[in-house]
Structures are given as C-alpha cells and as structure tokens.
C-alpha cells in the first residue's frame, strides 16, 4: 500500500471524527426540538446542546471528597471511545482500513470500554444512586451485547465478512439484500439495541428528574463542569455513531467508496441528512412512548435478541 493511500485513509478517519463531533450536538438538538414542538412547546432551539457544552467548559468543576482519578479519567475515556467508534464505523466512507480492523467486534469493544468507564464513574463518588445506576447500566449492557453480535453476524453472512465497511458497501451495491428477511430482521434488532445502549426511551428516560428511575443520569449525578461536558459529548457521540450505522445499513446510498473530495463531500451531506432525519424520528417516537419498568427491559431486549437470532436463521435458510 502506497503512502498516498495511507494518507487518504487517515484523512477519511479524521473527516469522519470531525463530522461526527460536529453533528452530535445538532442531532441531540433536533431530537429535543422535535419533541418540544410535538408537545406544544416552543423549544430551546437546535443549538441549545452546543450552548450547554460551551457553558459547562467554562465552569470550575467540584469533585466530591474521597473521589479518585476515575472521576477525571472516565469522562475522557468515554469521549475517546465515542471518537474511536466514529473513526471505525463506515459513516462517510465505506472503505476498510487494512491496518486497522474496522471489524464489528472492534467497534463493539470500543463502545464497551466507554460503557465500563461510565459505570466506574458512577461508582467513584460512592453515592447510592451512582451505584444503582451503574448496576442497571451493566445489566442492560450485558443484555445488549449478544444481540449486537448476533445482528451483525446475520448481516455478515451474505457478505462473507464481519467488516462493517464491506457490509455497508455490499448493501449499497446490491440493494436487494436490504429488503431480504434476514437484513430487515437484523436491522430492526439493531435499532432496538441502539435505543437501549444510548439510554433513550423506552429503556431510559433522558429527561427524568426522579433518581429512582434513572440509569444514565444516576451515574453522572456527581459529575460537574468540564467533566460533565465530556460525558455529555461522549454519550451524544455514541448516539450519533450508532444512529449513523443504522442509517447506513438501512439506506446505504451516498456513502463514499473512495477518498476523492467530491465523494467525501457527498458522503458528509448524506450522513448529516440521514442522521438528522433519524434524530427527528427518534424525538417523534419518544413523544408516543413511556419508559418501560426496569424489569420489563430484559423482555424487550430478549425480543430483539430473538429477532437477531431469526435473522441468522433466515440468512442460512432463505438466502
């Protein structure tokens, strides 16, 4: 592989990370604004998450007595895991890096590192709600991971590779596979799992003030100032990356095949449009939904695991 090609791949990764970082607060703003409008409110505007972040960066953090370095490091690890996932998932360009495995297992592991960092952050201050949030978070993570692996395994069977870039590129070049039973089942299973993994309704309510119902919020109750800004940005990044992955699996058109400037620009515009639309759909869906009782969450995730399992079976039987 020539040096020019390597530089092209690095450029692609940088573009993806930059685009995802810029998009994450906008996606969040669109989701909240859609929700506010449907509830009859005026809404704070699409730029509000950016204003919140800017303010948090200017605040002086307070760290509770007895907290350790985890309180400082964990938010950065969460952010880094989101950025790594943003670089590895085929969002703008679907071309695998030979040196870096853009494999599904790597992406899932990168996100899992962030999940564990967040759980440790919840435990660090030693408060009751933090520990409760962490235990719930790990329970959901344990139920989510098998479904993710099953769903992408089902998607990888027709392609013959578990590299996400190749899966997306194959779906783009052969649209018939998108409507195949295995493909549809797997993407639906993945969508349910994305909601659980990113702490959205019906698994977790991101707008709650009740500590007893919290999952994500309970873990960050003791985090303040810039630390909180990193946690927020990290979890928005995770949402944007996973929404982008689902969008590219459902509608793989516009994803660039190479690193030419035109294709990159088209890829960025297509990604922004897809993710913003999906964010608005998420906000609209949340208006119609209530949070599930915590003990019903395993049933929902078991259902999505069943879909993923059916997808694997179907991809052997039907394809």
């Amino acid at each position: 592989m020539s040096a020019v090609e390597v530089a092209g791949r690095v450029l692609v990764a940088i573009v993806q990370v930059a685009v995802v970082t810029a998009l994450a607060p906008i996606v969040m703003g669109v989701t909240r604004q859609t929700r506010a409008r449907l509830e009859g409110r005026a809404g704070a505007g699409v730029g509000q998450p950016w204003r919140d972040l800017r303010k948090l960066w200017r605040k002086r953090p307070i760290r509770a007595t007895g907290t350790t370095a985890v309180g400082v490091v964990a938010p950065l690890v969460l952010l880094a895991s989101g950025l790594v996932a943003g670089a590895l998932v085929p969002l703008v360009v679907a071309a695998p890096l030979p040196q870096v495995p853009g494999d599904l297992f790597v992406v899932v592991s990168a996100l899992l590192v962030g999940t564990v960092a967040l759980a440790l952050l919840g435990l660090d201050a030693g408060t009751a709600f933090g520990g409760m949030g962490s235990s719930r978070h790990m329970m959901i993570a344990a139920l989510v991971e098998p479904t993710v692996l099953m769903a992408v395994y089902a998607l990888s069977i027709p392609v013959g590779s578990s590299t996400l870039s190749l899966i997306v590129a194959a779906r783009r070049d052969d649209p018939a596979t998108i409507a195949s039973p295995a493909g549809v089942l797997a993407v639906v299973a993945l969508a349910v799992v994305v909601l659980a993994e990113t702490g959205r309704l019906p698994v977790d309510n991101p707008a709650t003030h009740l500590e007893l119902t919290m999952v994500h919020e309970a873990m960050v109750l003791e985090t303040s100032g810039p630390d909180l800004a990193w946690v927020e940005l990290g979890s928005w990044l995770r949402l944007t990356v996973l929404l982008g992955l689902v969008a590219n699996l459902m509608v793989p058109w516009g994803v660039a095949g190479g690193a030419s400037p035109g294709a990159l620009l088209l890829g960025v515009v297509a990604l922004a449009a897809k993710v913003v639309l999906l964010g608005a759909a998420l906000g609209a869906g949340e208006v119609a939904m209530a949070k599930l009782r915590l003990f019903r969450v395993p049933e929902l995730l078991a259902g999505s695991f069943a879909l993923a399992f059916l997808a694997v079976t179907a991809s052997y039987l039907v394809a």
Binding site: A36, R41, G43, A44, G45, H209, M214, L221, E222
Partner: peptide, 10 residues
Amino acid sequence: ERYGARLVAS
C-alpha cells in the same frame, strides 16, 4: 426551556 433554562436533578 425556550430561553435556555432547564430543571436538573443535581
């Protein structure tokens, strides 16, 4: 909330 104010839990 449209003016940027939001109630929080902590």
